[in-house]
Design a protein around this nucleic acid. Structure first.
Length: 863
RNA sequence: GCCCGGGUGGCGGAAUAGGUAGACGCAAGGGACUUAAAAUCCCUCGGUGCUAGCACUGUACGAGUUCGAUUCUCGUCCCGGGCACCA
């Protein structure tokens, strides 16, 4: 064998071999226990980045480990292939989104193969292919027929730069999540999925996701945002109109002294119409429509409102309340109307002070008397009701229930719950997405495309328009159609496409039978494989993608297509890949090669100014701190890159990139290779020793035990815990021990024990460095692949040590150590401890008050 | 503001039913091999003090529980993330 480990000589060879023998292909096999492992599929942006490498390296370790443990492992990969970057790139490079996308898929697929990931590539999917989105359209029609999809004219988030509508989740700090442009409001006819119908179920099952990180579950719960309260009707003075409000504090009802309506509330216009206030109110409404969302996020946000010129009646006290329209009242939460209780709500308090409105205290804290004149802020704590008629004296917690019940009995309101989550707006005014399979007929209205006419294929000959606007509406060959119901020839297709989160909401199911052309998926295959046993991806998808997937699974469940509700049993969210940044006071972010010198002394090559070593931050092009996996692959090979990604940090934590660390990982593989080569002749003709440790002695006995202890540790670290860094550490320790081999060539069992240790090392490291292990494994003369070999097992009798070190403490401080046989009696150990010279010294003249003995661990003498 | 995480050597990180703090790796220093270098192998490596073997001290900071606390409790500070006019 070669003296040196050269990844170039072995990685390509084994990749070809694995591919040719179909090693990674799987099919349903009822005789085996299944394990469905998925990593989040990538957007085909051009080439893979370190985030992908880390994510997929983690996944591949689990896949290979589970496979060796005897599981039938489904480990697929695909492409989240629709989306805006393709359009942007197409406009920029004068190409077509499809061409750009398919080329990227080919390039990135080759890179993933070069990483040696064990995907069943026969199951590869790309969401932009009609074979895929066809079934999404099919489901859309089914959902439409069942009333799970609807269309409404809605005020939506509009990004002028991207010329498209954004979902609430795609708006961050009122900026577009992709381009950073400020988001405006625009009214458009939109398609919505009724995800709110499932709000309660989605929330409820949050408690039943024990395999998910708590953080993600919490974020989902916050997003759904359930609050308990009551709906209350307030009659408008001198009219039949009643204003419905939602409140979480029905106990404060008697303190409600005014009412605030959202500017978009239909009653605002109705109530002010024909009054002297009309002009001012409508001016306010128009102003709010323009700036409301932008104002919401500004720091120096000011509560403001105008009187609409009408009053309503507090249903409990009969008092007249002024009606306002105010900027902080939101039309899309609750009922768009707020009963304002200035004494017990800080926002209402400020509003009332500003406009000089009445305040009535209705909750009195124990041992204190609040009065509206002297209050500096709203009282929001617990207390007892006052000024509330029949409810006076009642603790406010009880009053919530009592008042709600009273309202219900008198038809004035009812107990209810509200959710923060809104229906999922899926319409996108974009080209590169799945067409919404609907037809607008002048006579029949909205008509779904019949099943036998699906898929509605996205025309690939469309010319993209400057500014990113969708060309579909102006593409007559596409838009013009006949109504499938009445044959009207002036019907037009829906030209909006679907949010790309729709595609990723059901791709696990598709992986189970990716070539099924008679249905969304083969129900039996899904029954076998689903749900996904382990899903791995970035925490940035904690809300949107994961929530939508959970929702879609429920929809499929309602259609009887799947028999489960939760798609992902276990979830691992891995941390980001970060690297040091460099900043020049004049030239901003610098590439590493733009700085000269070392450490804190570096200077900018352009201006000579001292370079500030910035913080370690997530790799990004703009900060010029990215590492291209392709270069690493070329220099070190896939196994080293994989090893470093797994060794440098536990998966859920951020990983700090270190060039020296990669170098160290490479050195480790080199070291193992050398160890193997060094002992190869001595052990190649021998079988690994598998007997009892008691038949061995000295170093060989220790090495044998260390081997089995390592197998146990690595197994436990990988299985469920995912602490690959400590697993690798353990293997390194074993390797170090083999290096410390004392050359007692006389011992006949030497070769066998050595072989046992080295075989274990090769197998244990194989999920991390598969090509490397495969090569060494084959040098042993094995015919089968490592992946077809069983994961090593350990002997219980080889785990326990013969002797243990007992820590001797005096008053809790370490003073000495003692080596005794395992299982030495407490009393004997205690006597040995007391007789210890150093212990004696620290006891000195003092009296022994107590001696604590912990078996096989320590003795603590208290004086 | 509210809700979650997290603060351990020069660095990445180990160790928690409370029981030797710093595994493993990186960086650094020393030695061996070599004509030399690279590569490799071995050793040292939290801080302070000296009589060089010890002693003291040390897991963000301050208290507490305990024979014993990185681990449990309370308070403070800092960092990261999520939510935030949600009625």
């Amino acid at each position: 064998m070669d003296e040196r480990y050269d990844p170039k000589k072995i990685e390509g060879k084994w990749q070809t071999h694995w591919d040719a023998t179909g090693l990674f292909k799987v099919k349903e096999d009822l005789s085996k226990e299944k394990f469905f492992l998925m990593e989040m599929f990538p957007y085909p942006s051009g080439k893979i980045h370190m985030g992908h490498v880390r994510n997929y390296s983690i996944g591949d370790v689990v896949a290979r480990y589970k496979r060796m443990c005897g599981f039938n492992v489904l480990h697929p990969m695909g492409w989240d292939a629709f989306g805006m970057p393709a359009e942007n790139a197409a406009i920029q490079n004068n190409t077509h989104p499809a061409k750009w996308t398919y080329e990227n898929i080919a390039a990135m697929g080759a890179q993933l193969k070069a990483m040696g990931f064990s995907y069943d590539w026969d199951r590869e999917i790309a969401t932009c292919r009609p074979e895929y989105y066809r079934w999404e359209q099919w489901l859309f029609v089914k959902m439409f027929e069942k009333g799970m999809v609807y269309r409404k004219d809605a005020s939506v988030n509009w990004c002028e730069t991207c010329q498209t509508v954004l979902a609430n989740e795609q708006v961050e700090q009122n900026m577009c999540w992709r381009c950073g442009e400020e988001v405006e409001q625009k009214k458009l006819e939109q398609w919505f999925f009724k995800i709110t119908d499932y709000a309660e179920d989605l929330l409820d099952h949050c408690e039943r996701l024990p395999g998910w990180p708590e953080k993600v579950v919490t974020m989902q719960k916050n997003w759904i945002g359930k609050s308990h309260g009551a709906e209350i009707l307030f009659p408008v003075a001198g009219s039949d109109i009643k204003i419905k409000v939602f409140t979480t504090r029905p106990d404060t009802l008697c303190g409600a002294t005014f009412m605030c309506l959202a500017p978009e509330h239909p009653l605002v216009e109705l109530l002010c119409k024909g009054t002297p206030r009309e002009a001012e109110v409508m001016e306010f409404v128009a102003r709010m429509a323009k700036q409301e969302k932008a104002k919401r996020t500004s720091e120096d946000y000011e509560k403001e409102g105008v009187r609409v010129g009408a009053q309503c009646i507090n249903p409990l006290t009969g008092k007249t309340m002024e009606i306002f329209t105010a900027n902080f009242a939101l039309m899309d939460y609750g009922t768009g109307a707020v009963m304002s209780v200035p004494t017990h709500d800080q926002r209402d308090f400020e509003f009332a002070r500003k406009y000089g409105l009445d305040m009535i205290v209705v909750i009195q804290p124990e041992g204190q008397t609040l009065s509206p004149e002297t209050m500096a802020e709203a009282y929001v704590e617990e207390g007892v009701l006052v000024n509330s008629g029949q409810f006076d004296g009642m603790p406010n917690r009880d009053a919530m229930e009592a008042i709600a019940q009273y309202l219900d009995e008198n038809n004035l309101g009812k107990k209810t719950v509200q959710y923060r989550i809104r229906d999922w707006g899926i319409s996108r005014q974009r080209y590169w997405g799945a067409p919404i399979p609907m037809i607008h007929c002048p006579t029949c209205g909205i008509v779904p495309v019949p099943e036998d006419q699906l898929p509605v294929i996205l025309p690939e000959d469309a010319h993209l328009l400057e500014g990113g606007k969708s060309p579909l509406s102006s593409l007559e060959e596409f838009a013009k159609t006949t109504c499938p119901k009445c044959g009207n020839e002036n019907a037009r297709r829906e030209t909006d496409t679907m949010d790309t989160f729709v595609e990723s909401s059901w791709y696990p199911e598709r992986y189970c039978s990716p070539h099924c052309d008679t249905a969304m998926f083969d129900v039996e295959a899904v029954k076998y494989w689903m749900p996904v046993d382990q899903y791995i991806g970035g925490v940035e998808h904690a809300v949107m993608h994961l929530l939508y997937s959970r929702y879609f699974t429920r929809v499929l469940n309602d259609f009887g297509l799947v028999d489960f509700k939760e798609p992902f049993t276990r979830l691992l969210t891995q941390g980001m890949v970060c690297k040091e940044t460099l900043k020049c006071p004049e030239h901003g972010w610098l590439f590493p090669q733009e700085a000269e010198g070392a450490g804190d002394e570096r200077t900018c090559t352009k201006c000579g100014k001292p370079v500030e070593a910035g913080r370690v931050e997530k790799m990004s092009k703009s900060k010029k701190n990215v590492i291209d996996p392709a270069e690493l692959l070329e220099r070190y090979g896939a196994d080293t890159v994989r090893l470093f990604c797994l060794f440098a940090a536990p998966p859920e934590r951020d990983l700090d990139w270190s060039e020296e660390g990669v170098e160290g990982s490479f050195r480790f593989l080199q070291r193992v290779w050398r160890m193997f080569a060094m002992h190869f002749d001595a052990i190649s003709g021998t079988a690994a020793y598998t007997g009892s440790p008691d038949a061995l002695e000295g170093y060989l006995k220790d090495l044998y035990k260390k081997t089995h202890q390592t197998i146990k540790k690595v197994t436990h670290d990988i299985d469920g815990r995912f602490h690959f860094n400590t697993a690798i550490s353990a293997i390194m320790e074993l390797v170090n021990m083999v290096y410390g081999l004392d050359d007692n060539l006389e011992d006949k069992k030497r070769a066998g024990v050595l072989r046992a240790a080295i075989e274990a090392i090769v197998l244990l490291v194989s999920p991390v460095a598969p090509h490397f292990s495969e090569e060494l494994w084959s040098l042993f003369g094995n015919e089968n692949n490592v992946l077809e070999t069983s994961w090593p097992t350990y002997r219980e009798d080889a785990l326990k040590a013969d002797e243990v070190v007992i820590v001797l403490q005096v008053n809790g401080k370490l003073r000495s150590k003692l080596t005794v046989d395992v299982g030495t009696g407490d009393e004997e150990v205690k006597q040995m401890a007391l007789a210890d010279e150093k212990v004696q010294k620290f006891i000195g003249e003092k009296t022994i008050r107590k001696v604590i003995v912990v078996k096989n661990k320590l003795v603590n003498v208290v004086v």
